[in-house]
């Protein structure tokens, strides 16, 4: 009995030890992130104002705002999405409606997309530079940057759209074909509309990934911080701006923090829209079934 009691005590000591480790790890994580986010909020708000968003940078970005950079960022994202969305949705529709589960076509395409999703962003940058800027002759331009990001977000869009389509119940597909509807009609009227929240969530995730991207843009869309007048102009994305101010401009930290705060707020907004859409999609599926 004495031995038994000792083991118990030992066990509860080990339990206490585990709790200590877990609680302190959690505390470290929360502390680190409070520190980081706190710094961004404190330093970021020093410069952040309406005029910061609406004026051009001056003195290499040390003063002035980020208006042209926001415009370039928006244009790059716009190109990335306009190119990637139709191809992504069409590919996902092909995979889930025109190929068989476990079929060779689906396996090969899924595998190649999985690999593509794992390629480091700097490698996308190298590819974009070699292919879009030089081989296609687009040069350092918003177009090159947007197309490079389109390649990056394509696997995300395909994966989420495919997940959305595969959660549409088969009975609707059967119903549609029993009514003599073509697969295209079923897709446009029933399946894609039912998968819209998933597609939108994927879109938001893709935009989030693209907006956060720096490495793939440095040698594709370039550094020029003027207001772009066309898509052939080089344009500096917000993330590139933060990088440049931090690394290459002495005394650019204050504006870098303000820009980072803008970017982070933007990303949080985009992410929460994605999460809301995913959740709503989930609950909708429950009520529908």
């Amino acid at each position: 009995m004495a031995e038994m009691a000792i083991t118990r005590k030992n066990n509860s000591a080990r339990d206490l030890g585990l709790m200590l480790v877990v609680w302190s790890a959690t505390a470290i994580i929360i502390a680190a992130f409070t520190w980081i986010i706190g710094d961004f909020i404190i330093h970021g708000f020093e410069r952040l104002s309406w005029s910061f968003l609406t004026t051009s940078p001056s003195n290499a970005g040390r003063s002035g705002g980020i208006a042209p950079i926001l415009v370039s960022t928006l244009l790059i994202l716009l190109i990335a999405i306009t190119v990637a969305l139709p191809i992504g949705v069409a590919t996902a529709a092909f995979l889930s409606e025109f190929t068989r589960v476990g079929g060779r076509v689906r396996q090969i395409t899924t595998l190649s997309l999985d690999i593509l999703a794992g390629v480091p962003s700097i490698v996308f940058g190298l590819f974009g530079n070699a292919f879009f800027c030089i081989w296609l002759g687009l040069g350092f331009s918003i177009l090159s940057g947007g197309l490079t990001l389109a390649c990056m977000v394509l696997p995300i869009l395909i994966r989420t759209t495919q997940a959305g389509l595969s959660s549409v119940p088969d009975e609707w597909r059967r119903g549609a074909s029993a009514l003599g509807l073509s697969r295209g009609a079923a897709l446009t009227h029933i399946l894609l509309p039912a998968a819209t929240p998933a597609i939108a969530a994927g879109l938001m995730l893709g935009i989030g990934r693209a907006a956060a991207e720096t490495a793939a843009l440095i040698f594709t869309s370039g550094y020029v911080d003027r207001m772009p007048s066309s898509l052939d102009d080089s344009g500096r994305a917000l993330a590139v701006h933060i990088y440049d101010l931090t690394m290459n401009v002495a005394g650019g930290d204050a504006n870098a923090y303000a820009s980072a705060l803008v970017l982070i707020s933007l990303l949080i907004l985009i992410n929460s829209v994605a999460v809301t859409l995913t959740n709503r999609y989930g609950s909708q599926r429950i009520t529908a079934s």
């Binding site: 119940p169 009975e171 059967r174 119903g175 029993a178 009227h189 029933i190």
Partner: peptide, 9 residues
């Protein structure tokens, strides 16, 4: 079909 399958329209 066995289970009613109206479209989500």
């Amino acid at each position: 079909f066995q289970k009613p399958n109206p479209f989500p329209l």
